[in-house]
């Protein structure tokens, strides 16, 4: 008998693709997608149930379908997606509580997979270069998505204590990035001029959308209880990323960065929460040793490759593509040395 999987948050890109991927898995019999609004994209053979995880109806869905695996991807990152910070917090925190309450009551649920984020580690000047899973944040997030995720993880830990028979996997993802996924980060790097914090150059890590979904799939169909950081190899600096998209940067002194971020937000240009501004100031690195050794997962794309895939897919670097710079270099070289190439 195959698995019956419930996926929350299927109306959004990653949740929808996750449902689709799971329907194609031979070990999965049935996939039930849940969200408050209907999915905008194809979710494959998955059944869609319009249900709000904020109310107890979710328990009936789990009971009726005899769900044994719950994949919680319903935590949303930006108030823009939820229509305001209030309802975002409702969906994230109250939704998780209701979902976990339903899981706790259900005799059939055997596995819980939670898509969390590395932003639970916060960001600040006293951070170690790389966070391992056991480390406590030095600058605990105080607002927004990051704080919601900290609370979600706390409820998940509570659930794991009360239902030790359920295998719980929490995946702390670096920022999802790639050719198709839309996140505050991809909006940020699509701006014509990229505002940066003066005198800081944050280290960023990305996980390619395909890799991230593969990690979630493996956590769902295999058994890997525990908490794991998931990120592509290597880091990329904000300035370096800006050069790769060929966009000029506009430095803003850090005392004003939050105000500028709020203005961008109000104008709907990009979602700069205070957390996001802190992240773009100090950056963050997560250690993925446990992902490799215990979870046994190796992402196909490194962080710089993931970023390049995004740049290529959106054809962003039209101003200064690498070939043009190379041509200029060749011309300058022949001009300066009086011959064609370097030593050749």
């Amino acid at each position: 008998m195959g698995q019956v999987v419930l996926v929350t948050g299927v109306s959004r890109y990653l949740g929808g693709r996750m449902a689709q991927i799971l329907t194609q898995d031979p070990g999965v019999d049935r996939v039930i997608g849940v969200d408050v609004v209907a999915p905008r994209q194809e979710i494959g053979g998955a059944e869609f149930v319009r249900a709000d995880i904020r109310n107890p109806i979710i328990a009936k869905v789990i009971e009726a379908a005899q769900v044994d695996t719950v994949v919680h991807m319903g935590v949303i990152a930006t108030p823009m997606q939820a229509g305001g910070r209030m309802s975002m917090k409702e969906i994230n925190v109250i939704g998780t509580m209701q979902l976990l309450a339903a899981c706790q009551k259900s005799p059939t649920v055997r596995k819980l997979v939670v898509k969390s984020t590395s932003s639970v580690y916060g960001a600040g000047p006293r951070d170690p270069a790389m966070f391992t899973e056991e480390m406590e944040p030095k600058h605990a997030p105080t607002s927004g998505w990051a704080k919601d995720s900290v609370e979600v993880e706390a409820y998940v830990r509570g659930f794991a204590r009360r239902r030790p028979d359920v295998g719980v996997t929490t995946l702390r993802f670096a920022n999802f990035f790639g050719p198709r996924v839309q996140t505050p980060m991809s909006t940020y790097f699509s701006l014509p001029v990229i505002p940066v914090v003066l005198g800081f150059d944050a280290r960023l890590q990305f996980i390619h959308e395909d890799d991230g979904l593969d990690a979630l799939r493996r956590a769902t169909v295999e058994d890997h209880p525990g908490t794991f950081n998931v990120a592509g190899d290597g880091v990329i600096l904000v300035s370096q990323a800006a050069r790769r998209v060929g966009r000029p940067v506009f430095p803003i002194a850090s005392p004003f960065a939050f105000a500028v971020g709020a203005t961008f937000r109000r104008l709907g240009l990009a979602d700069f929460s205070p957390e996001q501004v802190r992240f773009l100031t100090y950056g963050r690195g997560i250690d993925t040793t446990r992902m490799r050794t215990e979870f046994g997962f190796v992402p196909q794309h490194t962080t710089p490759e993931t970023f390049d895939a995004f740049v290529e897919a959106h054809n962003l670097n039209r101003l200064l593509p690498a070939e043009r710079v190379e041509n200029i270099e060749d011309q300058l070289l022949s001009l300066l040395t009086g011959k064609g190439g370097a030593g050749a």
Partner: peptide, 22 residues
């Protein structure tokens, strides 16, 4: 000259490596 130009090109295109510590 070639070395300096190659360095400049990598700076402009962002085609350089930083380690985990930056």
């Amino acid at each position: 000259v070639a070395g300096a130009l190659a360095f400049l090109r990598r700076r402009i295109t962002g085609e350089y490596q930083v380690d985990d510590f930056g």
